[in-house]
Design a protein around this nucleic acid. Structure first.
Lengths: 212, 212
DNA sequence: GCGTGTGAACCTCTTCACAGCG
DNA sequence: CGCTGTGAAGAGGTTCACACGC
């Protein structure tokens, strides 16, 4: 595999292609064209081919892409052929709901453990898993080199949670809090911001009215 | 207000500026510079000024931006000065968790109602709200012209939920399902995809190892 | 002096369109 | 003939750097 630097946008699309390929695989399809993937992912076929061609020549002219083969390659590019452990910090409603919904059909991730800083919660059950004390995080990160932590604490405690995670050596974080978090720059942070999505949707609704 | 067409990226940033301004307001600050906002949002000050200058001249040279004034203007641009109603479709763990966490500090949105297609759930309580039958959605959309629907159903039922919403006249949807949804193009759809975020984080972790 | 607003340069991503292979 | 892979053109977004107003 060649190490290529590539935009996050392209990576997001690879993730979509992978999902689309898994679906095709489940349906017993063995070949897909760039056009079929494009339709599925709502982009142009040229974009699909461009994204894939960055990493190698996975397709066969005249026919398309072998589903199994392409999926393996994309997962290798993403690194999800050997997915890191995923933990949740914050056993509130969101944290437990995430565990509850699981990560089926997403390429092999599973929620490994859930942690909370509230002693009253520790030891209690959350969707079949015992809630562990946040103080155990350091130990967990010693045992698992690569861990993605999902922060689902109440607004205001995000930074505290993050600091503990960073101190324990965590390098990848997905946060559901609305606070902008501060971390060393070798720590990657992504956010799920429902309120921003709502803003985008509101704006687009209003703009359409204006245009009509 | 001038109608300007602008990228979604810029709208997302406006949403962040608004959040940052609300925080400043709560802290009693009345003036902010582009640099302060930039720091808070993790971008460059030039980008902040560029974004704002598209819509007008909100700042004062030498001092900065008036917090209250700028916030009002951004909310007017986004349309969140009069936020649309937000409903949830799917009273599973995610749907209920969303209601439970609420939308405090997000610019005025509130979850209005939650719907489900399972008759066994209808009438039951979900975080203080009675779960309504999905069949009531049409009526709800007649009463409220502008509605954002959050789809939080189990994977596989997303398209069915969406079809009902579209039929009832809903024009803006935020989906937590992993399926790519199909809708008329005057219906705006946004997705929250935890698994894609995990893929992006996995990729970036692995790339860093490679570089080191 | 300080911070905004903005032309201009720069850079990155997307789309087009076609050569080339199966 | 069909579909991939890709140079080349185009579009869009970002950064620079500075004139201008407070």
């Amino acid at each position: 595999m060649i190490a290529v630097k590539v935009s996050e946008k392209s990576i997001r699309r690879l993730s979509h292609y992978a999902r689309c390929l898994r679906l095709a695989k489940r349906n017993g399809e063995s070949i897909m064209t760039s056009q079929q993937m494009a339709l599925n992912c709502g982009i142009s076929s040229a974009a699909v081919r461009r994204d894939l061609s960055i990493y190698g020549e996975f397709g066969k002219q005249g026919s398309g892409y072998n589903v199994d083969n392409l999926l393996v390659n994309i997962e290798r590019i993403l690194g999800t052929n050997d997915p890191p452990a995923v933990i949740i910090v914050g056993a509130g409603s969101i944290g437990c709901a995430l565990i509850n919904s699981g990560l089926e059909g997403t390429g092999g991730y599973t929620y490994n453990s859930i942690f909370d800083n509230d002693p009253a919660k520790t030891g209690k059950d959350c969707a079949g898993r015992k809630i562990r004390s946040i103080e155990d995080v350091a130990g967990f990160l010693k045992d698992h080199k690569e861990v993605i932590a999902v922060i689902a604490v109440t607004t205001g405690s995000g930074q505290i949670a993050l600091d503990k995670l960073v101190k324990a050596g965590c390098k990848a974080i997905l946060s559901f809090t609305l606070e902008p978090l501060r971390a060393p720059k070798d720590v990657e942070i992504k956010y799920v911001e429902v309120s921003t999505e709502l803003d985008v949707l509101t704006h687009s609704m209003r703009r359409k009215e204006r245009v009509d």
